[in-house]
């Protein structure tokens, strides 16, 4: 990770690193996580100069930026150009949230016919400038660090900012949600209730909120160990979905939906949903 220690040009006097918060196709919830750091917000303001953050202030200044937090997926033709420009201006670029990191819920259209969506939603579809797919930031520019979740966790955001300011590689664990459930003493909803919980294949970060409330995890922090694991490396989505199928009697279409959610476009979840979609077609053919 590049250090962001900065000084005022021509002097040794330190200046605060400049922060930009930008968004593409998204709901703004991850940016709000930054504003929701109520107890720490003044410290964030002391540590960083908020230079560009339309969600928070109409005073928007240009780059270069020391840190850019990027929310949202690339969904419109101008997004890609804007993103390329932002990348040039940003020393450290960090994606925040499932849209920027995985393509988001709007990536469901990657499996659908965009034109039919446009016609169904808009009275004049011709006005809609939209790419056929919604894709994560990392498919377009190099990304220095990715924050997962829908929305992101504010403590994780704070940790990453703290580490970047110190000039060290940000530290975030990449284990399963299960570890958090067990540390916190939540009874396992999969084993004790028979719910199709995605916790075993989902990345930590949320604090195990859903299982803590007796609900099954739906994978909003994405696949454990990231988007591109090698062969034999977690997440083992095939084993978990086989268990849901054989023991909990989920049918293929339910398994497709289980994995095709907020992070459904990321390879491990995408491939799992494809596997059950084709098995669904096979069973249709048998009938």
């Amino acid at each position: 990770m590049k250090a962001v220690k900065t000084s005022i040009p021509g002097t040794r006097q330190p200046r605060r690193p400049r922060l930009a918060v930008a968004k593409f196709a998204s709901c703004d919830g991850c940016q709000l996580t930054l504003l929701n750091l109520e107890d720490e917000l003044l410290a964030v303001g002391d540590a960083l100069e908020v230079t560009y953050f339309p969600e928070a202030s109409s005073r928007m200044r240009g780059g270069p930026y020391d840190i850019a937090l990027v929310e949202g997926s690339i969904s419109m033709p101008e997004h890609a150009r804007q993103l390329a420009e932002l990348r040039k201006q940003a020393r450290v670029l960090i994606t925040i949230g499932a849209c920027a990191t995985a393509g988001g819920i709007q990536a469901l259209r990657n499996w659908a016919d965009l034109e039919s969506y446009k016609r169904a939603v808009y009275p004049t579809p011709a006005y809609i400038q939209s790419l056929r797919t919604s894709t994560p930031i990392s498919e377009h520019v190099s990304v220095d660090f990715e924050l997962w979740g829908c929305p992101i966790d504010k403590q994780q955001l704070l940790r990453v900012l703290t580490d970047v300011l110190a000039g060290v590689q940000p530290f975030l664990p990449a284990h399963s949600v299960c570890l958090d459930c067990k540390r916190q003493g939540h009874p396992c909803v999969l084993v004790a209730k028979g719910l199709p919980c995605l916790g075993p294949v989902t990345r930590t970060g949320c604090g195990a909120i859903c299982p803590g409330m007796g609900r099954d995890c739906y994978g909003c922090f994405g696949p454990v160990e990231g988007a591109s694991p090698g062969p034999g490396i977690p997440p083992n989505t095939a084993s978990l979905s086989d268990h849901f199928s054989s023991q909990f009697h989920l049918i293929p279409v339910e398994l497709v939906r289980r994995f095709r959610g907020i992070n459904g476009y990321l390879r491990p979840f995408r491939e799992e949903s494809h596997a059950w979609e084709s098995s669904n077609k096979d069973s249709d053919a048998h009938r």
């Binding site: 720490e40 410290a43 964030v44 002391d46 540590a47 704070l158 940790r159 900012l161 703290t162 300011l165 110190a166 530290f171 284990h175 399963s176 299960c178 570890l179 067990k182 540390r183 396992c188 916790g199 075993p200 294949v201 454990v224 034999g232 977690p234 997440p235 083992n236 095939a238 084993s239 978990l240």
Partner: peptide, 30 residues
Amino acid sequence: AHRCLACANCTMVCPTCFCHTVEDHPDLSH
């Protein structure tokens, strides 16, 4: 390994598993 999820539940519930990690949690001002 085709079945194992590497989710760590077995080690969490095990009465003898003692693996631990030590984390530093610094504040923003270091």
